[in-house]
Design a protein around this nucleic acid. Structure first.
Lengths: 207, 207
DNA sequence: CGGTATCCTTTGCGATACTG
DNA sequence: CAGTATCGCAAAGGATACCG
């Protein structure tokens, strides 16, 4: 039984919250910011949410036009509608605002959450393309211009390849672990233009 | 017993939602966007929330540094911190996004919700200052430049004075009621530069 | 893989009453 | 006015099992 309570308030903010204000809803949207995703991947990324709950949220968001369930290549994927994608700048701004909230104890970090973190916290610099492998899944991170972009999938000709896990990457971004330490004990493996990666991490360390 | 559950996710979005993601939390922030408010006013504006719930939310938001409870002039007021005020652009963007959500049935409109609606939906035009009286409370609305601003309190030298109620103003903004009809049956009273007010309403009617 | 179905616990939340 | 206290319930949501 999907949730369907309303604030019964004509204000746009209240109406928006009627649609994406339920628990987990905006995190589902966050997961889909990188592109269409399968149910099983969403489950893995949103580890705290039960399958039942995830189904409810997906149904509600679909019923409200935030996402669509589409079959392509034999598998079902959930994909943001154009309207749903318009939440992206809002979510990124909210993510920036939330950086000031103390880190939760024992964070259960997932790949996409730390990559959104990366996108929010890192500053763009020279044009560099990264192949970022986290827990076996591969992403493309690009710096350059005035943005840091993150997409799922491998880049064509990466300048740097990084293989690590979400917790280590988060520690590196937060400055809790030094890159050299993580390199020497094998938690992270970097090939290619290592200094570029080092610079990327440094930009995340602003106060 | 205030809520203190966490997504346990280091992502800034999740951390932000740990703080302002509970039900009613962002609407409390919305109420405070116009300035410090008293408990009783918040209760009136957020009619759907019980006193108990409102207390919980205020305590949580205070504990998390979004607002402060301050005694001034003999009365307690809740006031956004600087960090809390940084939610303003995010909330306004969310409100714009939410305009595409169908209006809830039988909306229980409050003064501030319709004024936020007004601010989000109206387009700035020539410099005009309005004295807006809704249910006995007075606000200042200004157009000009590239923004529509709304503040509590009466303006010094208003160009237009409007007296009505939130539901009628909302109907006028939504185009559900024509200004002339509302004027003739007394639901709204306008003195001063009536055409300016008519134009303001028209700008809200974009598709 | 992509969900449903069922059960059960928790708790958010509403209603009401009460207090300094 | 500005909340606190108590009660009680519907409902959200976690756990587990199951199914096409």
């Amino acid at each position: 039984v999907p949730t369907s309570r309303s604030y019964r308030d004509a204000c746009g903010i209240a109406r928006a919250l009627d649609v994406v204000g339920e628990r987990w809803a905006l995190l589902v949207v966050r997961e889909l910011l990188f592109g269409p995703q399968r149910f099983s991947v969403l489950r893995k990324e949103l580890a705290g949410a039960s399958s039942n709950l995830l189904t409810d949220r997906l149904r509600e968001l679909e019923a409200n036009g935030v996402l669509v369930r589409r079959r392509a290549g034999g598998v079902w994927r959930y994909e943001l509608t154009e309207w749903g994608r318009e939440l992206e700048p809002i979510l990124l701004a909210l993510g920036g605002w939330g950086l000031r909230v103390p880190l939760p104890a024992g964070p259960a970090l997932t790949a996409s959450s730390v990559l959104i973190f990366l996108r929010g916290v890192a500053r763009p610099g020279p044009d560099v393309t990264y192949r970022m492998e986290l827990d076996g899944r591969v992403w493309t991170v690009r710096t350059g211009g005035d943005e840091v972009s993150v997409e799922p999938g491998a880049p064509a000709g990466p300048d740097v390849s990084v293989r690590t896990d979400p917790v280590t990457l988060n520690d590196l971004l937060a400055g809790a672990v030094a890159l050299d330490d993580a390199l020497s004990d094998g938690r992270v493996a970097v090939t290619g233009r290592v200094p570029a990666f080092r610079r990327l991490l440094r930009t995340a360390l602003r106060p």
